[in-house]
């Protein structure tokens, strides 16, 4: 705390903070390089100035892709606005859908959910219970039925009922399983048949406690389905979710939501500043 200039100790400490927040070595070095460039110019930078600078640099890396933070849970342009939710096993897809439906409903939008995880034991039951909990309709078929057919039904029914938002759940799948990744393409294609511009949002859910593997998840899901939004879950724990900095820097996909618990209200819009602050607390 007594240090007034930036030396190797300060930078080492910085490295530790970033790496232990899952920022990853490559991104950490990139951030430190940026800082060092500033330090070289500005020889008498104090540690408090360094911290401000650091927060700015990281926010900048995040905002190069999140051109503006999302301010409200609302969707204007398309009706229905179709969201397809994807991600590896157990990250919090179904829970995020339940929480998001709740937020959208509170904004006065009518929401319908599609139970297109027909694979995992009791997945249909789980999303139905979420539908009951937040008071939105769920379109479902029997376990084991074709997920693309469930998505098709859901979109048709949403159009027929004039609903505002459709959210399609999908089964968790590891990104290195080619057959399962191709299935996502099929689900997506079927939606286009009902609404040519759908899905409008493909939301990749990442578990906030995931380490560097999140890069590969993002890469593979993006290749398979044109992911255009991210949600980071479980940030109510001690994990910092730092891997998202490198991810949004590399893939230019905005982080839209964060999950901070298991209850209906535990979904927030992503706020860069709050996120960066949490890395250093």
């Amino acid at each position: 705390a007594g240090k007034s200039t930036v030396d190797d100790d300060v930078l080492d400490n910085l490295e530790e903070v970033l790496v232990t927040s899952d920022v990853g070595v490559t991104t950490t070095l990139k951030i430190i390089d940026r800082i060092q460039a500033r330090v070289a110019k500005d020889k008498y930078l104090s540690t408090s100035e360094l911290h401000r600078l650091l927060r700015d640099e990281i926010q900048l890396m995040l905002s190069e892709n999140n051109s503006n933070d999302f301010r409200k849970f609302e969707y204007g342009q398309h009706k229905p606005y179709v969201i397809m939710v994807v991600g590896v096993n157990g990250v919090g897809k179904t829970t995020t859908i339940g929480k998001l439906a709740h937020k959208l409903k509170a904004e006065g939008l009518s929401v319908v959910l599609g139970a297109a995880d027909t694979f995992r034991a009791a997945a249909v039951e789980q999303i139905k219970l979420w539908g009951e909990r937040v008071g939105v309709r769920v379109v479902a078929q029997a376990m084991g039925s074709d997920p693309a057919s469930v998505a098709y039904d859901t979109l048709q029914s949403a159009v027929a009922n004039g609903e505002d938002v459709v959210i399609i759940d999908t089964a968790g799948r590891l990104h290195n399983k080619i057959g399962l990744m191709n299935e996502l393409g099929k689900i997506k294609n079927v939606m286009e048949k009902v609404i040519p511009s759908a899905p409008h949002e493909i939301l990749l859910v990442l578990d906030g406690s995931t380490g560097q593997n999140a890069f590969e998840q993002c890469k593979q899901f993006t290749e398979a389905t044109d992911v255009n939004a991210l949600a980071i879950t479980k940030l109510d724990g001690t994990a910092k979710g730092g891997v998202v900095i490198g991810i949004s820097d590399q893939f230019k996909i905005p982080v839209k939501y964060i999950g901070v618990g298991e209850s209906v209200n535990d979904l927030q819009l992503f706020d860069k500043k709050a996120f960066v602050d949490s890395l250093f607390n």
Partner: peptide, 12 residues
């Protein structure tokens, strides 16, 4: 524990 867990694995 999920094998994809990052740095938080130790705390948990």
């Amino acid at each position: 524990v999920d094998a994809m867990t990052g740095q938080d694995a130790v705390n948990t």
